[in-house]
């Protein structure tokens, strides 16, 4: 082989390797930059979503406080005010009538306090558990005549107090949504517990969710539900009904990995 041919061969092989090396370095840099950008965008979206959930949770808390304040002022406060007036008139008028009215007023006030207390934290939840509390809740709802409510339950296990409370609140939220927005006349709640797993299926026959609902829901109530699910390590799904009627949500937890109280 002549020197020129050898030179050409060696230089070409060096040149080829150089192009390959530079190409690899360039490609890896471009891929890496793109991956990092995608990763950061995803992190940013996650942060924004968490921020929205937190905002929703704080907003709900404030609304609840405002509702309790209104309840205290409008009913309990005004009852006690009336009672005070009656007591002032004890020595002036018909003592028997005033005592009767005062007792009636006191009974109403006590009942209002009991109702409010039950709404804030149902005693049956701590004492009897989620299954019985939901049964009571559904019975009251059904008895109110606003909506038909059916409730089925499998499993007698008690879950962690935080999980039971979170599920109870979520059912309250869902029924509130149904009554206010869904124009439904029927609700069905199916609870299945096999500790630590559980599954809660809530359905109504109302107008359902908008067809173009994004993966992360927009409504305050549903955001609260997502927030609570995250806290107890549960997943949520909005499966579409075959006839595309009504609203359905499945709340479930299949492992024991996410119970924050265990930590």
């Amino acid at each position: 082989m002549e020197e020129q041919e050898i030179t050409g061969f060696i230089l070409m092989s060096m040149g080829g390797m150089l192009i390959l090396a530079l190409g690899l370095i360039f490609l890896s840099r471009v891929s890496k930059t793109q991956l990092i950008r995608q990763f950061r965008e995803k992190e940013h979206q996650k942060e924004q979503y968490q921020h929205q959930l937190l905002e929703a949770a704080i907003d709900t808390q404030e609304r609840e406080r405002a509702r309790i304040a209104a309840e205290l002022h409008d009913h309990i406060g005004s009852n006690l005010q009336a009672l005070k007036l009656f007591l002032h008139q004890l020595n002036m008028g018909d003592r028997e009538r005033i005592e009767r009215e005062s007792t009636r007023l006191l009974e109403h006030t006590i009942q209002d306090v009991k109702n409010l207390s039950h709404e804030l934290m149902p005693a049956s939840l701590t004492d009897l558990g989620l299954q019985d509390s939901l049964y009571t809740f559904c019975s009251r709802l059904h008895s109110s005549g606003k909506v038909r409510c059916t409730y089925t339950c499998e499993g007698k296990d008690r879950l962690e107090p935080s999980t039971e409370l979170a599920l109870y609140r979520m059912v309250q939220e869902l029924t509130s949504n149904t009554l206010q927005h869904a124009r439904a006349d029927s609700i069905s709640i199916r609870l299945s517990i096999d500790k630590p797993s559980f599954s809660l299926i809530y359905k109504d026959n109302g107008i359902g969710l908008p067809k173009d609902l994004p993966e992360h829901s927009q409504g305050l109530g549903l955001k609260n539900i997502e927030s609570r699910c995250q806290l107890i390590g549960a997943q949520w799904q909005y499966p579409k009904d075959e006839l595309n009627q009504g609203f359905k949500i499945i709340l479930s937890r299949k492992t024991e990995a996410h119970d924050t109280y265990k930590l």
Binding site: I6, F9, I10, S13, M14, M17, L18, L20, A21, L24
Partner: peptide, 13 residues
């Protein structure tokens, strides 16, 4: 990457 691949053939020969 700039040194060793480029010298591979040269070292061998």
């Amino acid at each position: 990457l700039m040194y060793f691949p480029l010298n591979l053939v040269f070292f061998f020969m």
